[in-house]
């Protein structure tokens, strides 16, 4: 299968790789939301960590990904897109935009879905830690 140039670029030079500490460290930090989606037996796991200010701005984003080139590129791209955005803005990102940007073939659409899920999951984790009503996220979801 041929990959698009953008996928190859993200694979070779992934943006914002890393984490803000061990899984224990980040679990204790209220300014960090963690999303882990996927499963090893399905061949892809994405981990997204967001450092979010009191004003709800995503100041930094780090990812790690076990998966195919398209999964790596999708999560790398997601970090680029959400850095500096507000939570509300980040939640408007759709997997279809990732598909389009990376020219993913149909068989790789699930990679983009995972990336969208990881954003939602990391934001939900941040909100839960900070006692922000999940209702906000839910109402956003309902509004889609």
């Amino acid at each position: 299968m041929a990959y698009s140039e953008k996928v190859i670029d993200h694979y070779q030079h992934p943006r914002n790789v890393g984490s803000f500490g061990t899984s224990k460290d980040v679990a204790a930090r209220r300014d960090i939301g963690v999303g882990i989606v996927g499963a090893p037996e399905c061949g892809d796991v994405m981990q997204l960590q967001l450092r979010i200010s009191d004003e709800g701005v995503i100041e930094d984003a780090k990812f790690k990904c076990f998966g195919c080139g398209s999964a790596i590129a999708s999560s790398s791209l997601a970090t680029e897109w959400i850095k500096g955005r507000t939570i509300d803005e980040a939640l408007t990102i759709r997997n279809t935009q990732i598909v389009e940007e990376l020219s993913l073939p149909p068989v790789k659409i699930h990679c983009s879905v995972l990336a969208e899920d990881s954003i939602r999951s990391a934001i939900a984790d941040f909100q839960k830690k900070n006692g922000i009503a999940a209702a906000k996220a839910e109402s956003d979801a309902a509004a889609r």
Binding site: T22, I36, E41, K64, I72
Partner: peptide, 21 residues
């Protein structure tokens, strides 16, 4: 790049985690 490698290095058994498939 692998989150699973980090977990392994932290001594966490990846096969015992309940993943959301």
């Amino acid at each position: 790049l692998s989150p699973l490698w980090d977990l392994f290095k932290e001594g966490i058994d990846v096969s015992k985690i309940e993943w959301q498939s």
